[in-house]
């Protein structure tokens, strides 16, 4: 049985309409608004409001004991951009982000292609490869600190026994090597995420496409270059986007490895924000640093989305 309902527009026709029987009903537009409203409220309260509050705080000098605020205009930004520590931290953040992501993507791609093959023990290997991603950052940091300990650590001990060094080296106590080992730790922990993402995508690439290409005489490289890679590209871009945001904002791994030291040698922007807010007790400066981070990340995200749209268009 089909019931035909005739409706007429009322004065508030965009949101409500009157049925023929005189009752009101909500329009599709109202329904749509109501459905997204809870999400908008939650995102507004827990994401947008804190960002705006942080941005507003960046224009004040805030007494950490009483939170009394004095408007100082752009002076926090002026001080921040005039401080070499900010620029050095930004540079280290970019190095940390770029280095970890490039290696994560290349190694993750290699591992996912390997685990996509019909190999014995593949399921076990797929499970094991996830292991570093499941371990909490604090456990990884403490373990690596032990491994790298100059007198107790297995790394120094092995190098000494193999004659590669003649005395223990304090890798995390040197400005030239501390960040390198933090980067290695970051790659070790987060590469499995890339593997999961790419492996999932590999499993949905139509097999007949690859078979058709092989029948047409395409080499393995050509299959990879012209079929596998274009299919993977949208996921690679999304993974790049997510990992860039996460690595840029990464705090715990970087901080717990060397506490930002020695001499700020492993201080990235998130670690700097912590230092300014809770150690130097310059809350306004910390808010200014966070605001700059938001701007950088939004710019990077915009760039990635442009790239993603192009990758999707190419695939279609």
């Amino acid at each position: 049985m089909t019931v035909m309902t005739k409706t007429t527009k009322t004065a508030a026709g965009k949101w409500l309409r009157r049925r023929e029987n005189g009752q009101f009903e909500i329009t599709d537009r109202t329904l749509a608004v109501l459905m997204i409203l809870p999400a908008v409220i939650l995102i507004g309260a827990f994401a947008i409001y804190p960002v705006l509050q942080g941005f507003a705080a960046s224009f004040f000098r805030i007494e950490s004991a009483t939170l009394a605020m004095t408007f100082t205009g752009l002076s926090n930004y002026k001080d921040l951009f005039g401080d070499s520590l900010f620029w050095e931290s930004l540079g280290r953040t970019l190095v940390w982000t770029a280095a970890t992501i490039l290696v994560q993507i290349s190694v993750g791609l290699g591992i996912s292609l390997l685990l996509h093959q019909e190999l014995r023990g593949r399921n076990l290997a797929r499970g094991l490869v996830l292991f570093p991603y499941l371990i909490p950052a604090v456990v990884i940091a403490v373990t690596w600190r032990f491994i790298l300990d100059p007198t107790l650590g297995v790394f120094n001990r092995t190098m000494l026994e193999w004659g590669l060094i003649d005395r223990p080296i304090a890798f995390l106590a040197s400005k030239s090597t501390a960040l390198l080992f933090v980067i290695i730790g970051g790659i070790w922990k987060y590469t499995p995420f890339v593997v999961i993402m790419l492996l999932a995508r590999l499993q949905v690439i139509p097999v007949d496409l690859e078979e058709a290409a092989q029948i047409d005489g395409a080499t393995r490289w050509q299959v990879f270059r012209h079929i596998t890679l274009p299919w993977l590209m949208p996921v690679i871009v999304i993974t790049l986007l997510l990992r860039t945001i996460w690595m840029f904002n990464e705090f715990d791994m970087v901080y717990l490895f060397a506490f930002g030291g020695p001499l700020f040698g492993t201080t990235t922007l998130p670690v700097l924000v912590r230092y300014l807010a809770f150690d130097a007790r310059q809350i306004g400066m910390a808010a200014a640093t966070s605001s700059v981070m938001v701007v950088i990340l939004m710019t990077m995200s915009w760039g990635y989305f442009q790239f993603y749209n192009r990758a999707e268009a190419n695939l279609n």
Binding site: T151, R167, I169, A170, L172, A173, A258, F259, G261, P262
Partner: peptide, 9 residues
């Protein structure tokens, strides 16, 4: 002091 003390907590 032992090597590495520079970044010891």
């Amino acid at each position: 002091a032992p090597p590495g003390f520079e970044n010891w907590s």
